[in-house]
Amino acid sequence: MQLTHWASLPPIADIPLPEKLTSLGLGTLPHNPDLSFLHQVPPVQKLNLEGSGSPLHLADLSAPSGLRWLRLSGFDLSEGFPVLSASVRVQELNFYRCAFPADIDALNGIDSLRSVFFGECHGPDPGPPLDLSPLAGRTAPTQLTVEVGSTQAVTGTEHLGPGIRVRYR
């Protein structure tokens, strides 16, 4: 289920969501959205959040049980990235047009992570390429596939070990 223009919709608790909902997309969340509403979302496997600013209560991304795939688009994660990485236990993460801290090492803490996508993302300052070298410290037993969008500039791939493969789309 894709709900766009979230700012004009009623609170999620007031929307009759199907019991067997497997995928939920919320587009155009307000600037600096408060994600505490995620405690009211039924268990979903896929969650797509689009917005701007720095999301509040990133730890609440752990609320939807059974969450395996998460896409965040348009957010500034430069401050809250460690909280996000400590909260989610997903297999696939997708970031599109997001800002990150200089060190994305916090991704190494998600043992369940098998795939991460970066598209048009940047570090704390727009311009320089996103540095993937912190992922070289990953010790999780699962192999990690890093997918890089066609317009995404990255560095540090030469430091990644055999458990991490990089694919360009």
Results as ranks from 00 to 15, higher is better:
Thr145Tyr: 10
Ser23Ala: 13
Phe117Lys: 02
Ser62Lys: 07
Phe100Leu: 02
Val154Lys: 03
Pro55Ile: 11
Thr142Leu: 15
Ala59Ser: 12
Phe95Gln: 02
Pro101Phe: 00
Leu38Glu: 01
Gly74Asn: 08
Gln2Asn: 07
Ala140Asn: 04
Gln152His: 08
Ala13Leu: 05
Ile110Tyr: 10
Phe95Pro: 02
His122Asp: 11
Gly74Arg: 14
Val166Leu: 04
Pro124Asn: 10
Thr145Arg: 02
Asn94Arg: 07
Ser8Ala: 09
Tyr168Trp: 15
Gln91Pro: 00
Leu67Asp: 00
Leu70Gly: 02
Arg68Ser: 05
Leu67Lys: 02
Ser54Thr: 15
Ser133Asp: 12
Val83Ser: 09
Ser36Glu: 01
Gly80Arg: 06
Arg169Met: 09
Pro141Ser: 13
Gln45Ser: 12
Arg114Leu: 08
Ser115Leu: 09
Cys121Thr: 12
Phe100Asp: 00
Leu67Glu: 00
Ile110Thr: 09
Leu47His: 09
Pro11Tyr: 02
His122Arg: 11
Lys20Glu: 15
Gly137Gln: 14
Ser133Met: 14
Pro101Thr: 00
Val146Glu: 07
Gly25Thr: 09
Asn32Leu: 05
His122Tyr: 15
Pro42Trp: 08
Val41His: 04
Pro101Ile: 00
Gly149Lys: 10
Arg114Ile: 02
Thr4Ile: 06
Asp125Pro: 02
